[in-house]
Amino acid sequence: MNNSYIKIDTLSKSFGFKKVLDGINLQFEKGDFVTLFGPNGAGKTTLIRILSTILKSDEGNITISDYDIKKNVSDIRKIIGLLSHENFLYQNLTVTENLIFFAKLYNVKNSEESISYKLNKIGIYSKRNELIRNLSSGMKQRVSIVRSLVHDPEIIFLDEPFVGLDIEGSEYLLELFSEFKKENKTALVTTHDLRLGLHECTKVVVINKGQIRFNEIIENVDVNSFESTYKSLIA
């Protein structure tokens, strides 16, 4: 047992000879809303993919809600949601069919009502009967956000969730973020947008070249000068 809700201990991952994550140590508490900043190739997506059980690490340990990621992978999968670069949606199924399908994989009973509520929240209820292949990339991103939340996960990993979203979509997403906080859900969000990233977060982490360069609670971060701090961290 440990006190941290998510504990990452000396995590390393290489692709061939390239070390993408190099001895990462992080700890998050339940209800933390963490924004992970970093330049392209810093290791953000790899970290998210390992946490969401898609990839296996080379070294290090991860526990999520006291479950060891190597031993209790199925238990972890029940409580996490993932929004990735790919939307994981079937092109020839409608929005609702896709979401009902993914809800069934999580054994969600009577999912239609909660799906309608979430589609409404993210502003695409009117698109519920459209095929995914007929939607714009921004709309697909919104559907994918609902897909990642279809089973009401306790922990949500969002890898660059603002990509492809218009102003309205970004606002809907920020509203969802504030709802996560109210519901004491834990979230890890990666983004390049400093303004949107700092909007709701309780903790700021900067990663560069596979190593953690900055890890502070938001109260210790000077939001107004963070851009220059960030630039110096990734220089």
Binding site: T53, F88, Y90
Partner: peptide, 14 residues
């Protein structure tokens, strides 16, 4: 493989 839909299935606890 389109949109990595299989990954969406594999991250579920099925």
């Amino acid at each position: 493989k389109e949109n990595s839909a299989i990954t969406g299935i594999l991250i579920s606890p099925i």
